[in-house]
Every structure is written in structure tokens, then in C-alpha cells.
Nucleic acid binder design. Structure first.
Lengths: 313, 313
DNA sequence: AGGTCGTATGAGTATTTGCCCACTGAAAGG
DNA sequence: CCTTTCAGTGGGCAAATACTCATACGACCT
């Protein structure tokens, strides 16, 4: 109670400081004296507000080059949705930028008044996107995980995006309590036969929009790093032409799902239908992105300027 | 054509600069080298992006709306001070919250190091505000009652805020040993002619800041409930257009003090000058609040979110 | 062509901000 | 009750940013 009040008061002050600084345009000195604290504390509050995602900054001017690229990609690949973020010198920043843009896209969907079913995949880009979401009240929607949330070691997968989402957004969420890839086909069948799991997957199949990441297939693929598949399987996949992976589903350069290997054991939602928006940046993911689009696995894309350019050549 | 292209290019660069700076979190130095311009130019671009409204910042917290409302009220009504409290749960809780906020404002004045004369009115909101004050040592200030402390039955008025204040704060306090409204004009003249009363009223007139409540004029007005005026006088006041009351001074929707009735017998400090902060919440007080502000009776306000919104419509 | 005006640019400077460190006061634990 | 610990605070300093001013470039007019 007292602790809650205190935390609440603290948050109020943080928001107040952020408002005075960012909206009213006061200096931190002025903010400090208005709030009756030292300038250092004001600085801390402002930076806390920023890092906690309470402050959202948006540049509201489409850079024509990026717009052109986005349109070109839509035309060339028949995408229903495409957004290209400006190029930033280093790869890490570009990835962050893509996340922010993806976050904005997700937010715009959350702000729609009509009730929607929103599907969420996993991946670092997506996770960062969701982390930067503001707190949104959107009880009209249902948010469903498109893939399992159990890590190979049995723990709840850290980067499962749905839980991060739950912290930010007041909507009903539906996790999928399965591994991403079951150990055997039988295990998969058994899991998918369970009522709650089946109904969650049904819901996911009906999603109005799905957000997914795209992973490359390589020695440093997230799928391997996070322990979902061993190194030799990666090699086997590569031998069969695998270039990328979405929700655990591996596919080749033409976007054909590979049969006879891990895909038989993947517990995730199928990819066939509806608006599926992929967030992926970086030229290392190029073959994966191209494959996913060619095969119709995704029909929406958020990427960066450099990758977009490469895609068009 | 060429000019258009150039403007477009310029805007693109500005957007890109803003994007790199605000979203990607680069320094202006990095932005400059990435765009191949000087640091100063980068700074200009960023600031242009901001001032042209290309960059939108928003603080995602309930308090943000309240601060927006507060500045809107200040602008619209020319207030020198305004604070808006977030709406919480129900009307009663909101009223409490307003009291707390008023308490905070009073406290911030008490904490000032320079010696001040602080005027205090009466009212339930103000009383609750003072009750929640912590113990403060502020011998540098003088706290003076703006209105009489004698109830109609001759006892010391229970809700006179000054005495509550005295228990909390170690400062010199100056009560006004008169009724709020004298029985006759002659009685008032007699009382105000007394030396100590006159000097206290002089002190009150010089107050650096005054805190007052605003009462509505109705059958359930505090002024009547507490026995200061009988029901038929309330009716008479309403007939003459009275909508509210501050320190016993009744006024109409334009904030004009009503002549010929109770105001001739009010012993309180006149309202004409200095910073006068009113604490008032609840839509039932809306006409009273608006009148008081329009007539310049108060130039500061602490209110709640709902009332503030109504005031702006 | 030459002059003039307006705007953009770069240098220098004042202000603001971010971060490190030592300190305080309150809560937790012995 | 005393000690320990730790989050929060303020001072100080270096980096980053905003602002001012003199200059340069170019468009437009004479």
C-alpha cells in the first residue's frame, strides 16, 4: 500500500518531469526547480522516463527514398504492406531502428477500435519492438502467440514476445504452452491434440494480422544459438537448401517448406493465410527474406534501406 | 520544379537527421558525419525538424493529460497557476486527490526560504489539504486567516483551517476573531474598526499568496449547511444570479460581487489583489469556478481532470 | 556588370546535459 | 539497539548542444 503509493508517486513525478522537459520544452534545471528536486534528480527522472518507454518519439515525415523503396518492394513482390526505415551507419543501430518501426506498426494495429486477433511470433527484432511499445489499453483485441513458449531446457523462453506484450498492453493474451519444435512427431501430435492447445492454434489461424521475425539458417542462427536444433541438423537443413525460418518453419530460397526434417515436428501455427508482417533487417537475412516472400509465407515487411535496396537488385 | 526538388531533398535530409538523432539515438556529431554536413548544420536540421512539428513527442502517462489540461486552462483563462489532478475511481476519491494536490502546493510555498505572508480561507477541500500536511518548520512565514473564525453559534468554527495549520506548522498565525458574515452592517463596521482586527485584515491584504475554497450557492451550500445564511437568503442570492462564494463573498456567473445582500456584512478580506489560488473540484461547482475566474477573483486553480475538461467546453 | 538583399554556413562561445563519485538517510538484518 | 546495505542525492566535470555573429554564396534587380 505505502510502497505502491510511493512507486505511484515516483512514476507520477517521472512522467511530470518528462512532460515538462519534452512537451513544455523546459530545461532540466527548470524542471528540477518546478518539482523541487535537484537538477541531477530531474535528469535521472527524464532519462528514466525515456528508457522505460514512457516517452515516445516519432518522426512524422516519410523520407521519400525509403517511401520509394517501400513502394518498389510492394510492386515487385506483391506485398500488402511494406515499410523501409532509413539507413544507419552501423548494423546494431539499423536493427534497433527496424524494431522501432515495427513497434509503431504494431501500435497502429493495437489502436484500431474494432476487435482484432493479433498473432505474435518470436525473435529479437520483434522483442525489441514490443519492448518499446507504450502502455496501451486495448481490451477489444486478443493477442495470441503463434509459436511455443517453452525453451529446450524446459524454462519459459526468455524472448517469447507475448509476455513482454502482456506487461505493456491490457488485452487478453493466449500463450502456446509447447516447445517450438517437439522432440518427436508423436510428441507433437500428442501436444496438438490437447484441447487448450488446439483451441489456441485455431485462434492463431484466424488472426487478422500476424507479426513474425525471419531467421537465417546458419551456424549462428537463433534457432541453433537458443538450442532448438543441434548443429548437425542445421547442416542437414542447409544441405536440403534451407535459407531461412519463420516461427520454426524452415524453407528454401523459393519459400518452399522443407519436408522430412524439423518441420514435421514444429508446433507453431501454419503460415498459409492472412496478413503476415515480417520484421527483418540486415543483408545476412536477405536470402531468407526473399524466400519467405517468394513462397508467400509473408505478405508484409518491415526492413531497412540497405536490405531493401539489395532485395531490388 | 528544381526548387521543389530541392525543398524535397532538404526536407528529406531534415527528416533523416531527425530520425538519426531522435530514433537511432545518435549524437549530432554522428548525424553530421553520416549526412556529410557540419555539426552546426546537423543541429539546425534537428531543431528545424522539431520546430516544424515533424518530430512528435508524447508522454504516455495519465498525468500527461492533466498537464495538458492545466496549460490549456492557464492559456484560456489567463491563470498564473494551475494544477489538474487525474481522475481516480469516483468523485469522492477525486475530491480527496484534489485536497492532496492542494496540500502539496501549500507545502511547496511553506518550503520557500524567503519570509512570506500566506493567507488561508476555509472550506472542506482546503481543510483536508492542510490536514495532510507534514510538520514543517517555517518560522520565516506568517500565516493569516482571510476570513472570520467564529461560527454562527458563537463557537470557534470547526473547519477554520488556520487552527489545523497551527498544529502542523511552526509559524506565526493570525486568526480573525469575527464571524464570516456579521448580523448587521453596523456590527461589521464596529468589528472592522477594532485595532487588532484591522491590522490582521491589513496583513491579509498584503498576503503573497492566498489559498481559498470555492463554494456553490445552493440549498446544500456549505454557507447554508453551516448556518451562516438562512435558506431564504440563499433563494434571494440565487434570484440575483449568485452562483458561488469565496470567503463568504457571493458572486454571479461573471464573477461580479453581488451588492445589497450578504456581501455588505461579510467581514473577510477583500479578494482584489495578489496571487489567489482556489482549490475546487466537482462539476457542481463549475459555474462558481468559472465565475470566480472570469471576474478575476482568483488567478490560480487546483482542480480535477473532469472539471477541467468541462471548463474548457 | 555591379549592387543589394536574403539566406545558408562555419567558427566561437555560453548553456545544457550525462555521468562518475562520495555522501546521506532509511530500511533490513543481526 | 546497533550495524550493514543500498537506493537515492548532490557536487563536479567533460561532452554535447544551442545560440550568436561575421562571412560567403547566390538570386534578383538596376
Amino acid at each position: 500500500m505505502s510502497a505502491d503509493n510511493k512507486t505511484q508517486k515516483r512514476l507520477d513525478d517521472v512522467a511530470r518531469a518528462a512532460w515538462l522537459y519534452y512537451i513544455a520544452g523546459k530545461t532540466q534545471d527548470e524542471v528540477a526547480s518546478e518539482l523541487g528536486v535537484s537538477r541531477q534528480s530531474a535528469q535521472r527522472m527524464v532519462s528514466q522516463a525515456m528508457s522505460s518507454g514512457m516517452v515516445k518519439v516519432r518522426v512524422d515525415h516519410p523520407i521519400s527514398k525509403c517511401l520509394d523503396l517501400a513502394t518498389a518492394l510492394q510492386d515487385r513482390f506483391g506485398l500488402e504492406f511494406c515499410e523501409v526505415v532509413p539507413f544507419v551507419a552501423d548494423a546494431a543501430a539499423t536493427s534497433t531502428a527496424t524494431s522501432f518501426a515495427t513497434g509503431d506498426v504494431i501500435e497502429s494495429w493495437l489502436n484500431r477500435p474494432e476487435p482484432l486477433v493479433i498473432g505474435l511470433g518470436t525473435g529479437r527484432t520483434l522483442r525489441a519492438a514490443v519492448e518499446h511499445l507504450p502502455n496501451v489499453d486495448c481490451r477489444q483485441h486478443r493477442i495470441v502467440s503463434l509459436t511455443g513458449n517453452i525453451a529446450p531446457d524446459g524454462s519459459t523462453a526468455y524472448y517469447n514476445v507475448l509476455f513482454t506484450m502482456t506487461e505493456k498492453v491490457s488485452a487478453a493474451t493466449y500463450p502456446l504452452p509447447t516447445p517450438v519444435i517437439a522432440n518427436t512427431v508423436e510428441e507433437k501430435e500428442m501436444l496438438l491434440g490437447q484441447k487448450t492447445i488446439a483451441s489456441t492454434r485455431n485462434l492463431a489461424a484466424r488472426a487478422d494480422v500476424k507479426f513474425v521475425g525471419i531467421g537465417a539458417i546458419s551456424d549462428v542462427a537463433p534457432l541453433r544459438i537458443d538450442g532448438f536444433v543441434p548443429l548437425e541438423t542445421i547442416a542437414a537443413l542447409q544441405n536440403k537448401g534451407a535459407v531461412g525460418e519463420i516461427l520454426g518453419w524452415t524453407f528454401d530460397a523459393e519459400g518452399r517448406l522443407l519436408e522430412g526434417l524439423t518441420n514435421d515436428r514444429v508446433c507453431s501455427t501454419p503460415l498459409e493465410s492472412g496478413l503476415t508482417i515480417a520484421a527483418a533487417s540486415g543483408v545476412t537475412k536477405l536470402p531468407a527474406i526473399l524466400g519467405a516472400i517468394r513462397g508467400g509465407l509473408v505478405n508484409g515487411l518491415v526492413t531497412d534501406e540497405v536490405t531493401a535496396k539489395e532485395m531490388l537488385t
